[in-house]
Design a protein around this nucleic acid. Structure first.
Length: 421
RNA sequence: GUGGAUGUAGCUCAGUCGGUAGAGCGCUUGACUGUGGAUCAAGUGGUCGUGGGUUCAAAUCCCAUCAUCCACCCCA
């Protein structure tokens, strides 16, 4: 049996890499204009970081982490998300000392042991953005604006921003208590899953898709009616800033983040063309995460974007991705005597920055031309007996079909100019 | 973790009632001594996912298993 990639993982092939590189390029460029810098953190961390940071009652920590003991018997986990690592790195390296707000982004793989599905993999890619060390609502608006600009630069269609405030420790406990009481009064109408979790994590009932639960939720108490004055004012400010930046949003009282560390602003971006997994980004404020992992209480806000889903959406929506052909010039080689000369000429071209490939296998010229055509080469340089005796290559413009003889000495310079123009 | 669908050539797929494997695309060569995209022809290409079972005979029927896809769930 031939070995295959593990379940839920896949290879990103040369034929699709230009799309991935473009998405990364746009991300770096957009985030850069907002003053964010890249940070790279380990792909595995102490299991404890996620247990305390993400929360030990979350599905992610309870049943989706790749956790194992290393040879020194330390429990480590492949990262299921990026925020906890970033906050850990900022605290550990004291990056906030002397800084007002620390703005970073990351790009990398995350790992969750989930059942694979359309747009869901066990190894998946996230781009994340974090603003750490400040809680004025202008930061919330800016973070959302970063994501919004990223998606619109890519040209993603049917983008919807769902927005909510999920309160803070001053107001949420009272709400959770009332919600729990309400759920208890309607237990017989809830699905088995919600029945089981109404005590531990009642807010999950809010985004359950079962019909019975939806009916119950329709009349459930709303968190928006419980927000304390500070949270309410904060939420109003965020919305007014978004209005000013002309970013549309749908207030969605049922947005509940799946990670414990969120408070106040919570949001999610959805896009068309994705099937059931249509969330392409989500995030929120996490003012209590730093203290959970042993730091001083430090506010922060951020979001993560699902690269895999973004790329599926780009494809489904037929968004044009800028691409460049893999080579500018293809050298055809006819006869054994031509090989050393062709190799030398290819070297000259490459040293001049011209993307060059050549024939290695001594096939007929027709086959070589077909390869050049398939590679989308702009020029073909032919080397055979005639060229060797004249010390001049035949250069064919593949667009026009025009051919000319160019002395070996001048070939690299001539093609460099043509390719640059 | 639960359910449904699907695994046949590099890719997309056909294969009837069980009788020993096919097409298109690709690739190679030629028509066109050294010239691409179009056309035509020939050639290349297969542990029929894997392991059992039934049968004179299995891609086809049965069982198990693995993988993929989709949905639940969860989330990015």
């Amino acid at each position: 049996m031939r070995i295959q990639s593990p379940k839920g993982t896949r290879d990103i092939l040369p034929s699709e890499i230009q799309t991935w590189q473009w998405v990364e390029r746009v991300a770096r460029s957009v985030f850069g204009t907002y003053g964010y810098q890249e940070i790279r953190t380990p792909i595995f961390e102490s299991t404890d970081l996620f247990v305390r940071g993400v929360g030990d009652t979350t599905d992610i920590v309870e049943k989706e982490m790749y956790t194992f003991n290393d040879r020194g018997n330390r429990s480590v986990s492949l990262r299921p998300e990026g925020t906890a690592s970033v906050v850990r790195a900022i605290l550990q390296n004291r990056l906030l000392d002397g800084a007002s707000v620390l703005k970073v982004y990351y790009i990398g793989q995350m790992f969750r042991y989930d059942r694979p599905q359309a747009g869901r993999y066990r190894e998946f890619w996230q781009i994340g953005v974090e603003a750490f060390g400040a809680d004025p609502p202008a930061i919330d608006a800016e973070i959302i604006a970063v994501g919004h600009q990223f998606f619109s630069t890519l040209g993603i269609k049917d983008l919807i921003l769902h927005l909510n405030s999920i309160g803070d420790p001053a107001c949420r406990p009272k709400y959770v208590e009332d919600l729990k009481a309400y759920a208890k009064a309607h237990l017989d109408e809830l699905c088995g899953k919600c029945y089981a979790r109404h005590e531990r994590n009642p807010m999950r009932i809010l985004d359950c898709k079962e019909n019975g639960c939806r009916a119950v939720v329709a009349n459930a108490p709303l968190l928006s009616n419980y927000l304390c004055a500070a949270c309410r004012e904060n939420f109003d400010m965020v919305k007014s800033y978004l209005d000013r930046l002309e970013i549309d949003y749908h207030e969605d009282p049922y947005i509940v983040r799946g990670l414990d560390y969120y408070s106040r602003t919570a949001f999610e971006f959805t896009a068309g063309g994705l099937g059931a997994q249509n969330a392409i980004g989500g995030g929120g404020r996490y003012d209590y995460l730093a203290q959970e992992i042993g730091g001083a209480r430090t506010p922060g806000i951020g979001f993560a974007l699902g690269m895999d889903r973004i790329i599926i959406a780009l494809d489904a929506q037929h968004v044009t991705v800028p691409t460049s052909p893999p080579v500018d010039v293809y050298l055809t080689v006819l006869g054994d005597a031509a090989m050393p000369i062709a190799l030398q000429l290819a070297q000259d071209l490459r040293e001049n920055g011209v993307k060059t490939d050549l024939e290695y296998k001594g096939r007929g010229l027709r086959a070589q031309m077909r390869t050049a055509n398939k590679l989308n080469a702009r020029y073909v340089v032919m080397i055979g007996e005639d060229e060797i005796s004249n010390e001049a290559a035949t250069v064919r413009d593949m667009g026009s079909g025009d051919q000319q003889s160019v002395a070996f000495q001048q070939l690299a310079e001539m093609l460099r100019e043509k390719v640059d123009s």
